[in-house]
Computed example of a mutant assay.
Amino acid sequence: MPTPASSGPLLVLTGSYTPDTGGDGAGLDVVRFDPASGRPAPESGLPPLPVSGASFLAAHPTLDVFYSTNETDPGTVTAVTRQPDGALAALGTPVAGGGTNPCHLTVHPDGRWLLTANYGSDTEPGTVAVHRLDEHGRVSGPTDVVVHEGSGPVTGRQEGSHAHQVVVDPAGRFVLATDLGADAVFAYVLDTRAGTLAQSAVSRLRAGSGPRHLAFAPGGELVFSSDELSSTVTCHHYDAQTGILTEGSAVPATTAQDVDNYPGGIVASPCGRFVWVTNRGADTVAAFRITGSGLTPIGEVPSGGTWPRGLTLTAGHLLVANQHSGTLAALRVRDDGTLEQPAPAASLPSVVCTLPL
């Protein structure tokens, strides 16, 4: 089994688009997931927390604090904690996100900095922002905002830069930001005293690929990208000394024909053998085996809804947030990396992301 199973139900935080951001969701909800049955269900007695455009979630490494993007214009980020009865509560007020339409965020391993990727808009470039976190996990700032530059050949999507993800590499040396509009991954060094970013390198990727998210294999030597605009998954070699990605082989994200498809979430297994990707359009989750320095397709199953966006691995299952159908589905992972058909899904309008609590 590539991921350990759990002996009992788990709580999962979910985020959704709200009416003010084009969706029908409540913002943040708590779901109870039973790995034995593979069925998620809303947790009774815990009301949702209204958070505007909660499109991505991240956890503090040591505190019972969680962070949500507020995908608005201008964008903000919200810190959330849990009360003794388990109910969600905002930790302070939303803080300026440092750009337009924040779509991803992560907490630095030292727990003192929150990093946010702001997609931008048709007129505003993508940016990456740094926010200071105090000893209680409250957000202030931003302390720095860097603006991406670049464009690509895909009309209507790549006239300008669009930061889509920001992560810290496995060695903790570089902050990496994917840019869908610029076909690039920007590498930065974070000054952990001042909270500022210094650009150290740019990895230029295949024109028109539109890199969305990255997933590192254990060890950090290989990193995989879900390429939203070319409907591919690419294997890259990562140089931990420079922060540079060297592009390798790419495979189609789906076997579906005659469908416009946009890969979304991507996860690499902790055992280093498999990669899984959601396909918006084909409405599937595809499984791949890592073979040397590339990927081999090993199966593809329905996602349990339509427009699968977020993807999280927990307790031997992939939790899939199906945005347009408003369903959260769980796909059991077999020992060989292939996936079982999902159990009945939970109804969560406009759900787009999940985070195990």
Rank of each mutant, 00 (worst) to 15 (best):
A129F: 07
A184F: 07
S161Q: 03
S151C: 02
V130C: 01
Y119T: 05
L205T: 08
G150T: 00
Y119L: 07
D122V: 03
L190G: 07
A207D: 13
T143G: 14
H131A: 08
H164S: 04
Q165L: 09
D191I: 12
L205E: 06
R206L: 14
G126F: 00
A201K: 03
V166C: 02
E159V: 04
E124A: 15
Q158G: 06
S200D: 09
Y188F: 10
T178N: 12
P170R: 10
F174P: 05
G141A: 13
A184Y: 07
A187T: 11
A129K: 08
G195V: 02
L180Y: 07
F174G: 06
L197R: 08
V175H: 10
H162Q: 03
V128S: 05
V139C: 06
A177L: 08
R204A: 12
L197E: 04
S121I: 01
A198T: 14
R206D: 06
A187M: 13
D183K: 13
V202M: 04
V167I: 14
P153A: 08
A184T: 13
R204Q: 11
G195T: 05
F186N: 09
L190Y: 05
A198F: 08
R206N: 05
P142S: 14
G172P: 13
V128A: 11
R173Q: 15
V202K: 12
G195A: 03
Q199E: 14
R206F: 04
R204P: 01
V145S: 08
A194M: 08
G126Q: 00
D144M: 08
V167M: 12
V185N: 13
P142G: 07
S200Q: 10
V202W: 06
D169I: 07
G195E: 01
V154D: 09
S161E: 07
V185E: 06
V147D: 03
E124F: 09
G120M: 07
T143C: 15
